[in-house]
């Protein structure tokens, strides 16, 4: 019922044709990337770790479609294998964070009192602990691996998710429709899942999509500090970190992974917008 105006005010004038483009292009790209990442082993790509030092930093050519990197490895192969790594880290780490953090945040914001105090304390400790120290400890103590890096970045995204969900829950928990649900005797569980969660999802979802890109880049930052996925396994962030070395002599070594990453996060977010508009409960109430 809130939304009856929305259509009139904002969305009505949007031509239908645009919807399709906004859906088809990003969907196509994401599907392509995901497909290649999954099937990388079977599509006849050269070994992403195979070096030909003499042929380092070659620009794109017929033989090497995306050129070669600092150690003369096929960039195309590394981009595709890198997609696998980056997508696993980028999707799983924030997902882990949002699952744990979201649950903490919602309970804290809704129940308040002791639970809130405890949750906030927990988040505060996690947050107040410098991310760098945590990531360093993780990788130094448990060793550098895809799993550990994902876990470290996942834990690092718990507090943010928790705070965002708590703040939003705080704002929604005292709204009329929640109070109304409470007066008619709805259970806490019901109120949380039916009244509050749907309102939380849009901002959380938007944040998650952004978080994917942030995490993919963060993995690159870890690589830059020497704490990322161990070589020679490629990741987009790590490739950019390596490519930075030759930014002026062979810009493609950094720009190609950056461009691929850009296209992917952009697609994910456009898709996100579209999906959100489609599933927005108040919009569908129309």
């Amino acid at each position: 019922m809130h939304a009856s105006a929305t259509k009139g005010a904002i969305a009505a004038a949007r031509p239908r044709r645009r919807w399709h483009w906004a859906l088809v292009l990003p969907l196509g790209w994401v599907t392509l990337v995901a497909f290649l990442a999954i099937t990388a082993d079977w599509i006849g790509l050269p070994d992403p770790a195979a070096q030909e030092l003499i042929l380092r930093r070659k620009p794109p050519s017929a033989e090497y479609l995306l050129g070669t990197d600092n150690l003369g490895r096929d960039m195309l192969s590394r981009i595709i294998y890198g997609a696998r790594t980056s997508l696993i880290v980028g999707i799983c780490a924030p997902f882990l964070g949002f699952l744990v953090g979201g649950a903490i945040g919602i309970s804290a914001g809704y129940f308040r009192g002791k639970i809130d105090l405890l949750a906030v304390g927990f988040i505060d400790v996690l947050l107040a602990f410098p991310a760098l120290v945590l990531a360093l400890t993780f990788t130094a103590y448990l060793g550098q691996s895809l799993f550990n890096v994902t876990l470290a970045l996942g834990i690092l995204s718990i507090p943010a998710a928790a705070r965002v969900s708590r703040a939003n829950t705080l704002a929604w928990a005292n709204r009329d429709f929640v109070l109304a649900a409470r007066t008619i005797g709805a259970s806490n569980w019901r109120i949380l899942t039916r009244e509050i969660l749907p309102n939380l999802l849009p901002p959380m979802f938007a944040f998650w999509l952004v978080a994917i890109s942030v995490i993919i880049v963060a993995e690159g930052a870890l690589s830059f500090l020497g704490l990322g996925i161990p070589a020679p396994q490629p990741s987009w962030g790590g490739m950019i970190a390596d490519g930075r070395e030759a930014l002026d002599v062979a810009p493609h070594t950094a720009l190609i992974p950056a461009a691929v990453m850009f296209a992917t996060v952009l697609s994910l977010n456009f898709l996100g917008d579209t999906v959100r508009n489609m599933v927005d409960p108040r919009r569908s109430a129309l």
């Binding site: 195979a50 150690l71 550098q144 020497g226 704490l227």
Partner: peptide, 14 residues
């Protein structure tokens, strides 16, 4: 765990 260390190690590995 530095760029130099990583580079040398990957070349050795290959």
């Amino acid at each position: 765990a530095t760029p130099r260390g990583r580079e040398g190690a990957q070349v050795f590995q290959a």
